[in-house]
């Protein structure tokens, strides 16, 4: 469990990145910090592995205040995945994944063995292991990034817009893969993004942030979509323009044809089931 207790961050030059932010992320769930750039979401994420020290308040992992934990040791037990993968260009793919186990003291052979297991988990061909990151596609590099984040088998995974730099088709595929991996491994994930669809796909809970780390809204995807109280939130999620309003029309076979705001058909709800649990 990760707990932000009224954390704030003010830089020496006086800019306030985050003010009085509180959030509890239950173990084995995914929390998405959603907001445009400058809203302090990356600052919040980096407080969890002490890359940013909060000016006020505290961050707790499993009830333990992390300000007392040695930063390097802390980072080695927390997975971190970032945009542009952040891979080390001078190390082979397999050694990139094996970096954290190596730092934790595993032998080179054991670390590489673990690396190949992870390549399989994230859906990478083992043949790519001996290549250098520069020889991989953007999507493949991001998969390597995820594998590296998972390599030390951390309980916590921090993801900073990990799929922000890949093309939309690959992004959707990576999101699906991450959801599958999460289903299997059940990590506690904090995921930072500005992509609303990504947040809705991956988040168990979503926190929408305004400038300065102020929480505009938070809740499950379903709660957010049915929230029209806050103007900022409905505009941010596109609820006000009707872009997310769907319409249903009964067909002759008794199925429901669902269309979006522009009248484009999206799919059908079969006659027998009446499940509507997907937002």
């Amino acid at each position: 469990m990760i707990e932000f207790r009224q954390v704030g961050k003010t830089y020496p030059d006086g800019t306030t990145a985050v003010e009085e932010f509180s959030l509890t992320v239950p173990s084995r769930s995914t929390a998405v910090l959603l907001g445009s750039s400058g809203c302090g979401k990356t600052t919040l994420l980096r407080m969890v592995n002490r890359m940013v020290e909060p000016s006020t308040g505290s961050v707790l992992i499993d009830e333990e205040d992390i300000s007392g934990v040695e930063p390097v040791a802390l980072r080695r037990r927390i997975g971190y995945v970032m945009q542009h993968s952040g891979l080390l260009p001078h190390r082979r793919v397999i050694d990139n994944i094996a970096t954290v186990p190596r730092l934790n003291g595993a032998s080179r052979a054991d670390a590489r063995k673990r690396g190949y297991e992870l390549m399989e988990i994230v859906g990478l061909d083992a043949k790519l292991g001996l290549r250098y990151p520069g020889q991989l596609s953007g999507g493949q590099q991001q998969r390597v990034g995820v594998a590296r984040g998972l390599a030390a088998d951390p309980n916590i995974l921090l993801m900073d817009e990990p799929f922000g730099a890949v093309d939309p088709l690959v992004r959707v595929e990576l999101q699906r893969e991450l959801a599958r991996v999460q289903e299997e491994l059940k990590k506690t994930i904090i995921f930072v993004t500005h992509d609303i669809d990504e947040a809705l796909t991956l988040g168990d809970q979503i926190v929408v942030l305004k400038t300065g780390g102020a929480v505009a809204a938070s809740g499950t995807p379903a709660e957010l979509l049915s929230n029209r109280q806050d103007e900022f939130v409905s505009r941010f999620l596109g609820l006000d323009s009707g872009a997310r309003s769907l319409s249903a029309e009964k067909t002759d076979d008794g199925e429901l044809l669902i269309s979006d705001a522009q009248g484009r058909p999206l799919g059908v709800v079969p006659a027998q089931t009446d499940r509507a649990d997907r937002p």
Partner: peptide, 13 residues
């Protein structure tokens, strides 16, 4: 900076 940030984040001293 990207590479350095990521190296710090994964636990290099």
């Amino acid at each position: 900076d990207d590479v350095q940030t990521s190296a710090t984040a994964i636990g290099f001293s």
